[in-house]
Design a protein around this nucleic acid. Sequence first.
DNA 1: TGCTTTTGCACAATCGATGTTGCAAAGCAT
DNA 2: ATGCTTTGCAACATCGATTGTGCAAAAGCA
Lengths: 362, 362
Amino acid sequence: MLQSIMAFVHPVNHILKNVPEGPLFMSNKQKETIYDIAQKAGASASTVSAALNGTWKKRRISEKTAQRIIQIAREQGYTTNNQARALRTSRSGLVALLVPEYNRFFSNIAQTFSQEVRARNLCPVIISTERDPKEERHIVEDLSNWQIDSIFFVGSVSPEDLSRQCKDAQIPHVFVDQPCALAPSVVTDNRAGALMLTQQILASMPAATGDPLRDRVYFLGGDRRLPSTYNRIEGFSEAIRAVTGSVAPDQIIAKTYAKDAATQAIADLYGQLGGLPRGLFINSDSVFEGAMHFIATLPEDELQTCAFGCFDYEPFGQLLRFPVHMIRQRHKKLVQRAFWHLEHTTTPVLEQIEPELYRAKT
Amino acid sequence: MLQSIMAFVHPVNHILKNVPEGPLFMSNKQKETIYDIAQKAGASASTVSAALNGTWKKRRISEKTAQRIIQIAREQGYTTNNQARALRTSRSGLVALLVPEYNRFFSNIAQTFSQEVRARNLCPVIISTERDPKEERHIVEDLSNWQIDSIFFVGSVSPEDLSRQCKDAQIPHVFVDQPCALAPSVVTDNRAGALMLTQQILASMPAATGDPLRDRVYFLGGDRRLPSTYNRIEGFSEAIRAVTGSVAPDQIIAKTYAKDAATQAIADLYGQLGGLPRGLFINSDSVFEGAMHFIATLPEDELQTCAFGCFDYEPFGQLLRFPVHMIRQRHKKLVQRAFWHLEHTTTPVLEQIEPELYRAKT
DNA sequence: TGCTTTTGCACAATCGATGTTGCAAAGCAT
DNA sequence: ATGCTTTGCAACATCGATTGTGCAAAAGCA
C-alpha cells in the first residue's frame, strides 16, 4: 500500500525562515552542520537535530534546551542539508510534475502546482515529456533515484504503465487531465463541458443555408482514442442528438491534436462543403490555432456564417473578428484536488471537475 | 571563484540506461545498493562504486572486473541513489530555473531549459517567483540547501542581490532576459529589436490625420526602470528621431506590465486623442492582451487608422482583424547561450541576442 | 533514607555512495 | 633468489542528518 507523504513537513524550515538579514550570508564560511551548532550550544548533535526538526518533545528534550539551540541555529544562519536528511529518511522533499509540453493549459497547471508545492515547503520538479512514452519511463526512473516523494502526471500518454512503474518503486502518484485506471485521477468533466459548449454553439448558429451538410455542427481535432477526446465526442453527440436525432460519423474529425493537421482539416472541410459549416466545435487550443490559420484568410462575411466553440480557453479568442465560445478548464481545482487525493487516498478513483463556459458576446 | 559544474556527468546513468525491459521492475524488492552488487560480484563496495561511476581506470580496477560488475549491475537493474551521491560529492545534479510566472515567453524558456538540462543528464527544477524579491531570496536559500548545482534566473527583479547570495553560497548562476552587473547574463537585444519594430510600424502607418498628436507613434507598457524596457525605449526613440527629429515624453507610457493597466492606458489615450494614434508600440504580450481588451471594442474602420507592433510573439496576434507586427525573442538561443556561459565562464559578461521581426501581412 | 519512575540527554548506528590509504600478489630487473 | 615497482583490490573514514538505546541525575513516593 502506498503511503501519503505530502502531509509531512519538517518544521525547521519554518522555524528558521525569518532570519535577520545581518550575519546570514556573511562570507564563504563553510555551511554549518548540526555538529557545529551542537558544539556552540554545548549539546550533542542528536539533541540539536531533535530541537530543530521539532521532534524534541517526543525525544524528551527540555523546552529550555530546545529553545536555546533554536536560537543559536538562527543566529548562525543554520539551514539543514536536504541530501543528508533525504538519505536518512528516504524522503527527498521533491515532488514532480510531468507535462507533455508547455502550452497555455499545461503552463497554468505548472504554475498552480509550483505554488502548492512550495506552500508545503517542498521543492517542485517540473519536466516535459514531449509526449514520448519512452521518455516518460526514463524520467520516472530518474526521479525514483532521487527518492522523489510523489509524482503528478499530466496528460500522460501511457498512464497504466507509469502507474505500475511507480507502484514498483513505491512512489505515490496521481493523474491529472488524462485518467489512469490504476491510480487516483482528476480530470475535467469533458462530457459535461462538451455538452455545454455544443448547446451554446447550437444556440448561436446563424440562419440555415438549406444545404444539409453545411447546416450541421462539426467536431474538429483531438484523438478519439484518448479518453478526454472520447468523452468530449460523447457530450457533443448528446447535444446534437437532442436536436437532430442523430450524429453522422463524418461530423467528427478527431485524429490528432497537431496544428498543421487542423489547418488542413478545416481547409478540406471548407472545400467539401463549399463554405464554412454552420457550427464548429474546436477541440483544444492547438487545434484552434491551427484552424485559425485557415479561417483568418476568409473574407469577413463568411465568418458570420458559422458559430465557433473551442474546448480550451485562449484570451485572444475573445478578440477575434467573430465570436468564439470557449470552455475553460479549472486548472487550479484540478491540481488542488490532485493534491488532496495524494494526501488522503491511494485507491484508483476518478474525480471529474466541471469546467466553465465562456459565452462570447455576439 | 565559482566553478563550472555543468560539464560533469556521472557515466553510470548512461551505462545502465538501456536496460532490457525484463527483470527490471520485477517487484517490491528493496532497491539494490552497491553493497548488494558487491556481494553478488564478490567484490567490495568501493570497487563496485568505481566500476559504475567510471573512475575504475583511475582507481586501478582491472577492466575485466569492471565489466563483470557493470554486467551484474545491469542485470539487477541497479540505479544509484542520488541523495547519497549528492551528500558525498556535494553536487546534487539539480539545476534550477527561476521564472516570474508562466506566460508564453517564460514557458518557452522553461521548455528549452528542461530539454537542455535533461540532455545533460541532470534534473531540472523550475520555480516561479511571482516577481517577489523576498520569494526569490527564499527560493535561492532553499535551493542552496538542496546543494543545487546551478541556477538560471529569468526576468529576475533583484539580480544583484541574488547574485551576491549565490556567490556566498558558491552556486554558479546566470541571468537570462534581465541582466545582472555581477554575473554572466544573456538578454535579447532589446534596443535593436525595438528599432526594427518601430521602423516597421513607421513604414506601415496609414495616411496622416493632420492632428500632430494623433500622427505620432506611442510606446505602451513595461517598466522604464527595468533595463529591458529602458533599452526598448532607446530603440524606439532612435527610430522615431530618425524620422521626426525628436520624441516627446508623453509618447512613452511605460509604468507597468500589468494587463488591466494597459487596458486603462490605451482607453485613456484614445480618449485624449479622440481616436487611435497612427502607430502603437506594444511592449510585451501581457500589455498586448490588456490593450486588446479595449481595442477589440472599436469599430472595424477605426482599427485601420493605426499601425500596431508588439514586442513579443503571440500566434493569435496574426489572426486579429488588423495587422500586428511582432518581435520574437529567440528563447532557444537565450537558454543555450546561458548554458554556455555557465559552462565556460564566470565573469560578468553581457551577451545580447538579436530577436526576429515578424512582419504582418497587410 | 531507599527505591522506583521519570526526565534529559549523549552515544553510536545508519542511510548509500565516494575516495583515501594500505596491503598482498604479480611483474620485473639484477 | 632478492629487492623494487606496479597492479588490483579491500578496508575504512566520510558527507550531515535521523533515530534506537542506554545511562545518569532528578523527581516522586514509601
